[in-house]
Design a protein around this nucleic acid. Sequence first.
DNA 1: CATGAATGAGTTTTCATTCAT
DNA 2: CATGAATGAAAACTCATTCAT
Lengths: 217, 217, 217, 217
Amino acid sequence: MRKRDTVTPRKQPSQDRSRATVEAILTATAYILVRHGYARLTTNRVAQRAGVNVASIYQFFPGKEALLAELHRRHIEQGRGAARAVLAAHQGGSLERVLRTMVEAGIAAHAVEPELHRVFSEQMPRIKATRSAASEGFLLEEARELLSAWGCAAPDVERAWWMMQTAAHAVVHQAIVERPDDLRSGALAEELVLMLERYIRGKQTPGPRAGAGPEDT
Amino acid sequence: MRKRDTVTPRKQPSQDRSRATVEAILTATAYILVRHGYARLTTNRVAQRAGVNVASIYQFFPGKEALLAELHRRHIEQGRGAARAVLAAHQGGSLERVLRTMVEAGIAAHAVEPELHRVFSEQMPRIKATRSAASEGFLLEEARELLSAWGCAAPDVERAWWMMQTAAHAVVHQAIVERPDDLRSGALAEELVLMLERYIRGKQTPGPRAGAGPEDT
Amino acid sequence: MRKRDTVTPRKQPSQDRSRATVEAILTATAYILVRHGYARLTTNRVAQRAGVNVASIYQFFPGKEALLAELHRRHIEQGRGAARAVLAAHQGGSLERVLRTMVEAGIAAHAVEPELHRVFSEQMPRIKATRSAASEGFLLEEARELLSAWGCAAPDVERAWWMMQTAAHAVVHQAIVERPDDLRSGALAEELVLMLERYIRGKQTPGPRAGAGPEDT
Amino acid sequence: MRKRDTVTPRKQPSQDRSRATVEAILTATAYILVRHGYARLTTNRVAQRAGVNVASIYQFFPGKEALLAELHRRHIEQGRGAARAVLAAHQGGSLERVLRTMVEAGIAAHAVEPELHRVFSEQMPRIKATRSAASEGFLLEEARELLSAWGCAAPDVERAWWMMQTAAHAVVHQAIVERPDDLRSGALAEELVLMLERYIRGKQTPGPRAGAGPEDT
DNA sequence: CATGAATGAGTTTTCATTCAT
DNA sequence: CATGAATGAAAACTCATTCAT
């Protein structure tokens, strides 16, 4: 018994009222996080904003951390969903089209509650999962295999993938704050696809299928 | 002027004794930050670790924030210094060499007290300067002009520069935590230069100096 | 709205338990104020004396000042009540009797917790309401009209009233500390009535009702 | 050796520089008292304002209280001086003229640094001497004897004197804040003399010198 | 004497968390 | 379940005062 779990939700709300309470609590948490910042997030404030009693929070969550963890989990899930939607709608084709799809999926993932996203990635101490978790929504595992088909030299493939992932994520993420216009206009996506494509194209093993990916004409 | 400045140091220590005190305070701050994390950083703890009285902290700094701001300022300064050193040692040459130099400058900037660097970029709420400030050390303005000589299409140059900066910074930064081996071996630098070079080469205006930068043969 | 209100109570206690807590807090405040003085009044001391936790104070009051403000408000209210009681019991009659009633009302107002009264008027910085508020209990507006019936020359009436109020209040107030015996024996009231009566009688407009107030024989 | 004297100045400054320092300290004290109030008066602030080091304060005063005590002593002294000047210039004559002189002396006493006076009487905890000390400047002992010559009934004289003193002081004092115009125009003095005269005239023992004081025609 | 520096002992205030109803 | 109330523990910050030079 080292220490009690401070992150897993306590009990699943079974009745309607309970579920509404939990929703209210999480909504309030998000609101305060965005509006006042992590430093000003207190359980009492959350309760007040949610219109419930502090004690009610502890009925469903073992502590403050659990609140944030759950909110974060949901946020990631939503981002992932958005990304999946894009990937599902448009898949396959030329290298460029695959990359574009992935970039757009990433952008979509970052588009859900961007303010909240920002708070999570800028102000949250403990939650390191941010990037990797979001990235799973960003460049999904499925996509990885598509790419490996283009034939990078063996030792490189994993590292190259990491490079792309890292660079692409950072560019999209920073753009939210620093280049919102380019994000909206699509110029940024264009540019990012360019960067990734040129990078990966240079990786292709020359030979039988030189200059072309599997499905490329 | 709603609230008093909570960030600017209160008074400069003039004697040796107080200069030592301030040093001790900042050292203690860094230690606690790295060792216990931002959440556990309290003025009392800092004072205790520094072997001085809490009040002494408040003689020179208006509060906790100022402590962090000053530490951060110094850290940035050191990183910038390291980057400058690299840039000064090796400048000019082919596009690839220029990029390599810049990447290495960036890596050097991130190499000073990497633990502290990590805390600053992961756990600090307000201080936004982190990236941009560090980046100034990372890809200095001088370097920018070198690149623009390679002839990117006019409207792109600024955006392209931002892309490179953002991507490169993120890659180096994340690598500290996620790929320390690749950083040490130089493989990461190699790969990053590759990415940047391919990206920028594709930007070159075709024509008289197509395929070559000014100093390229 | 430069700074938050530091004086208005934070929330009303709704249950019996908390009402008791608030009472305990205010009682403790009064005790410490009287026993140890304003300078020694600290929220911690109050909490300890009240047998509650410091935090409980801050649940109902935004700070030390609010504690004092509320205590003061109640004290004024009590004084006013005492004065009203006297005025209600005995009203009308000759000028002398009216004045006597008013003086006695004022004395009654000062008789509730005189120690506390003294602390309030001697040691309290900001609270300016002391005199004027207490005075409203002392020489009530109703009384004023009675007096004006005696026919002071028009321009004087307001100023004369202020004189009487100020002088009478000070005499009663100081007497608590400096002449408690005269207060108890009634000699002071006698003397004060004398002073006021002679002063106001001199103000009467000569003529038809010279020498006599409306109800005077 | 109960506790060290915290009120008496430590040493008389003998050299010119020292005396200047002491002056600067006291001036700064007065300034802060008036400008920022008693609550914000700290030794450090005083020192800074005075342009000297905190420790210098402790060279001449045993503590904060002594600072205030000395300032107060001087203030009283000045008030007394002003009163004496008035009394000296104009003495003797009819009852009315004597009273007027005294009232004017009192007003003069309150006219020296009225802001400081207000702070002393409103915000100072310990110093109870305020009123009585100021009053000695207000209605000096000499004046008392003049009055007793008018022949009040024996048991009354002392109490009557206290009444007049108390009432007159309060009226003048409050007028500074509440009726500055009446003070300046002389209307208040007029009224006050009226009040006192009527009061004391009523006290005269009837008989041989009924209706007239010694020097009255 | 004067000063920069230092500090002990406190002050106000906050907050996550639990308890009684 | 829900809530008003309560609290332990600690946080930030202050200030009168002393010391070493």
